[in-house]
């Protein structure tokens, strides 16, 4: 038979401690209410409305630390209301309505990888066994690929993307246009500076960043720009210029005729998918 060693008294040993706890809890509860009333932070309704209007992705694409940082900046007079590339035109309109200013349409952009050097087009120079990151691979003789300008494919940009818009396939990264918000985090993450923001209506781009002379480029990649200048001659609006032996398209002049795509012998100039 189980015997209780010490005789418990219902009042002294249970009720009183329970009442003490109840009293302490009530006291602290009241204290919290008093303290929170004294230290009340006045709510800024305009800021809260702005926070609701912003997408809340906290990607930093606007150049401020998160959506709250941008909301704080918007409250200063004369602030640029069209910096949020994630929310786009709709978000810019909403912000302008809240602030009572003229809506400014933000320029729509898209990220484009300036490299097409998949495994079929390039070859490895050495076997890389180090840390699986573009930055470390880049530091080891410019990476294991035959072209030291090309995409390394370890996905530093994929890790930086908050919108799941980048995916590695065949050793290079592919941009999902539907998901890309042009926040620019991947542009900062790429050690080769291969990802660039282009206007969303761009149809063609020189998808190569190799500045070597043509003969040397040909040896490392069969889809690189060899600097033949045929596109420069073909372009009717002189939108293409040469940077050493790499063609560069000025997107503000481009009329999207596609003539350069047709003449490019290596297919380095390609229509954007």
């Amino acid at each position: 038979m189980y015997v209780i060693p010490v005789r418990l008294s219902a009042i002294n040993d249970i009720l009183i401690p329970a009442l003490i706890m109840l009293g302490a809890a009530l006291l602290l509860g009241v204290l919290i209410v008093i303290v929170s009333n004294i230290f009340k932070v006045p709510r800024n309704e305009k800021k809260e409305a702005l926070m609701d209007a912003l997408p809340g992705a906290n990607c930093g694409g606007c150049g401020f630390p998160g959506c709250e940082g941008y909301a704080d900046y918007l409250l200063t007079p004369g602030a640029n209301t069209s910096l949020c590339s994630v929310g786009g035109a709709e978000c810019a309109r909403e912000i302008a309505t809240i602030l009572g200013t003229e809506a400014v349409e933000p320029e729509k952009k898209i990220v484009v990888l300036h490299c097409q050097g998949t495994r079929d087009h390039t070859s490895p120079r050495y076997e890389y066994l180090g840390t699986q990151s573009c930055h470390s691979a880049h530091n080891l003789l410019g990476g294991p690929g035959s072209c030291t300008y090309g995409c390394l494919g370890f996905g530093d940009c994929v890790a930086a993307c908050a919108f799941d818009a980048l995916h590695i396939k065949d050793g290079i990264v592919h941009v999902d246009r539907e998901k890309c918000t042009a926040c620019g985090q991947c542009v900062k993450a790429c050690p080769k500076k291969l990802l660039k923001l282009l206007p969303a209506d761009a149809t063609v781009a020189v998808r190569c960043s190799n500045e070597w002379p043509g003969a040397r480029t040909r040896k490392v990649c069969n889809i690189g720009c060899i600097g033949c200048k045929r596109c420069v001659k073909e372009c009717s609006v002189e939108a293409i210029s040469m940077n050493g032996s790499l063609a560069v398209i000025d997107q503000s002049l481009c009329v999207h005729c596609g003539a350069c795509v047709a003449v490019c012998p290596t297919k380095a100039i390609a229509e954007l998918e």
Partner: peptide, 25 residues
């Protein structure tokens, strides 16, 4: 014997109050 209970209660309330004060100050 009420040590654990009281301590939890006091610490939780304390942190709550510190948080509100810090938010303001």
């Amino acid at each position: 014997f009420l040590q654990t209970l009281v301590f939890i209660l006091v610490i939780a309330a304390l942190v709550q109050m510190v948080e509100t004060m810090m938010k303001k100050a």
